[in-house]
């Protein structure tokens, strides 16, 4: 086991080295994008998910529209039962400068178990920018988001759908993330932890597929730690759509069944030997 992990670290270091120079040229995610900061359970049993919205220098925070809606979601969404999802409009929280752009704080409250699709829309010059993200929520209070107001306006951005996570959307390293974007470009660029790493091509069925690599930091940090993956798609009509996905530690990535079964049989042999010896309470055979 030790040998395998050492090998892994070496190649990652190489990769980082390599990507480091190549990326330096095209870094700087200067487009509208989301980043999830924290999920917390409220005292009334609901869930509050807070986000940072990075706003590029060109855009003006005032005219940014933030809306979200709850999507029916497999057996978890059973309560909503497929009725038309409600759409809510949310105001930006307080903002603070970051680099030469600004970052706004946005929180979403959910009282039910649902899949939420969050969208921010802004106009930088004549090109429009959208930031999208999708996440699962397990509120149990049944209340509504107190400081969001229902609206029937929804930004007319190109249709977007996440293919994975039919029951429960929680991206993991080593598992493909698939999403579709109408009239999207052939490939989208992928930024991991703020650094451009690769591109994701559109496959035959029109979905962009990207498999985030395993990450030792994540494994070490625990099951709630995540790394930020952002997909940036520059649309033919000049708009730019970013799709943010928090990626967690893999559920199946680092498990070794053969090793497990070896330990199991070893422990069974030892226990059997102990039991036989302990059982010699009565000499008669």
């Amino acid at each position: 086991m030790a040998r395998r992990t050492l090998l892994f670290f070496i190649c990652v270091a190489l990769l980082m080295q390599f990507t480091e120079d190549e990326l330096r040229a095209a870094d700087g995610m200067d487009f509208l994008r989301w980043r999830m900061t924290e999920q917390a359970r409220t005292s009334d049993g609901g869930m509050v998910v807070s986000f940072d919205l990075s706003i590029p220098p060109g855009a003006n925070p005032e005219d940014i529209e933030v809306t979200y809606r709850a999507l029916p979601q497999g057996n978890i969404g059973a309560e909503t039962g497929g009725s038309a999802p409600e759409t809510y409009r949310k105001k930006l929280g307080d903002t603070r400068p970051e680099g030469d752009g600004t970052v706004a704080d946005v929180t979403v409250y959910s009282g039910r178990s649902e899949l939420i699709e969050l969208t921010a829309a802004s106009r930088a010059g004549d090109a429009r920018q959208y930031a999208l993200t999708v996440f699962s929520c397990f509120g149990e209070s049944g209340n509504e988001d107190p400081d969001a107001e229902r609206t029937n306006y929804y930004p007319n951005r190109p249709a977007f759908r996440v293919a994975t996570g039919q029951y429960y959307f929680r991206a993991q390293t080593g598992m493909p993330i698939e999403f579709s974007l109408d009239s999207g470009p052939d490939s989208v660029s992928v930024f991991e932890k703020g650094i451009f790493t690769s591109t994701a091509e559109r496959d035959a069925s029109g979905n962009y597929v990207y498999v985030p690599p395993h990450d030792d930091e994540l494994s070490e940090a625990g099951y709630t730690a995540k790394k930020d993956v952002v997909f940036a798609a520059s649309m033919p009509d000049g708009d730019l759509i970013s799709f943010y996905v928090p990626v967690y530690r893999s559920f199946y990535g680092k498990i070794d069944l053969k090793g497990g079964l070896a330990v199991l049989s070893g422990s069974m042999l030892v226990s059997a030997a102990l039991a036989m010896r302990a059982g010699r309470r009565f000499p008669w055979r």
Binding site: M1, T5, S219, E220, G222, R249, G253, K254, I255, D256, L257, G259, G260, L261, V263, L264, G266, S267
Partner: peptide, 20 residues
């Protein structure tokens, strides 16, 4: 029933679980 190499804690738990 598999060992979990994520980190020392998960590895420790998985070995203990399988041994038990």
């Amino acid at each position: 029933l598999a060992l979990n190499y994520d980190n020392l804690v998960t590895l420790g738990f998985s070995v203990a679980l399988i041994a038990i």
